[in-house]
């Protein structure tokens, strides 16, 4: 019996650690392949336009990811502006209207929305916005992404508000304050880190999504700030250039992966975790 036990234990360690090994392998690959490209092209990577497909015929092209970086920020910004008010208020509904059927339904909807395949948002927004507007755009992409971020923000907000003990909320009520004043002023300092942490997690999730943007955000070699223009994003660029046989485009896919993971997503998650630590009381 003890021998069998040790065998199983060893197996668990091997399986678990190899899963983590693969994770480190993925992160390592991004670092090893992406960072040199970023260093090679330097600051130009963040300011230059994306090289056009026929660059070979026009001498040395300028190499950059600026349109994809700006596009990612635009799309995320639009998604954030839409999903924060809806997600936050839905979270308040779910957490604070405990006994109402509407709150139960809202919770059900939010936890279902989280599970909907993200490409769905891309297809739906394509029919809803891209066709009537005759053009993909940052706006359409942002709206598609917001559908993915709303349930995250709602659920994180609800969790955070639920964690505040009822006696603390009653303490505020007993001072003759309205419930809304208690929620948004008295316990603000208590819930803010948790809510911000949730929003950052949602942003990290949104920043990496490509499926909802493939058919909604379009593609743009140049930087634009017009939300009705097509934009490229880092995630879509990784996909489109990833299949290419051109060495330069593959390099750009690595660089985009590096920026996406190490410059955008991991810092967002790190800040989010620190926030949650602070939130514990």
């Amino acid at each position: 019996m003890p021998r069998l036990y040790k065998l199983w234990l060893a197996l668990i360690y091997i399986i678990g650690l190899s899963a983590l090994g693969v994770l480190l392998w993925v992160l390592g690959s991004i670092l090893v392949n992406g960072l040199p490209v970023v260093l090679k092209y330097g600051i130009g990577l963040f300011t230059n336009n994306i090289p056009p497909p026929m660059f070979l015929f026009f001498g040395k092209p300028e190499v950059g990811l600026a349109p994809a970086i700006v596009g990612t920020l635009m799309v995320i910004g639009i998604a954030f502006a839409i999903s924060l008010p809806i997600g936050f208020t839905a979270g308040i509904l779910i957490a604070e209207f405990k006994h109402s059927k509407i709150a139960e339904l809202a919770e059900e909807l939010a936890s279902t929305l989280v599970e909907v395949p993200t490409i769905t948002a891309g297809i739906s927004i394509y029919w809803l916005l891209v066709i009537p507007m005759h053009n993909p755009s940052a706006l359409a992409g942002g709206i598609a992404l917001s559908l993915i971020m709303i349930p995250y923000i709602a659920i994180y907000t609800a969790e955070t508000y639920r964690k505040v003990p009822m006696v603390v909320k009653e303490g505020g009520l007993a001072l003759g304050l309205k419930y809304s004043t208690v929620l948004f002023k008295v316990i603000r300092g208590l819930v803010l880190p948790g809510v911000i942490s949730g929003v950052l997690m949602a942003l990290a999730k949104g920043a990496g999504e490509a499926a909802p943007l493939l058919f909604t955000a379009g593609w743009n070699d140049k930087v634009t700030l017009n939300p009705l223009d097509q934009v490229s994003t880092l995630s879509v660029l990784i996909y489109k250039f990833g299949f290419s046989s051109q060495e330069l485009w593959r390099e750009l896919s690595w660089a985009a992966s590096f920026i996406l993971v190490f410059v955008i997503i991991l810092p967002l998650i790190a800040i989010s975790k620190i926030m949650v630590k602070k939130h514990e009381f």
Partner: peptide, 9 residues
Amino acid sequence: FQRPNPFPH
């Protein structure tokens, strides 16, 4: 209240 409930933050 029964248990002290100051605003802890």
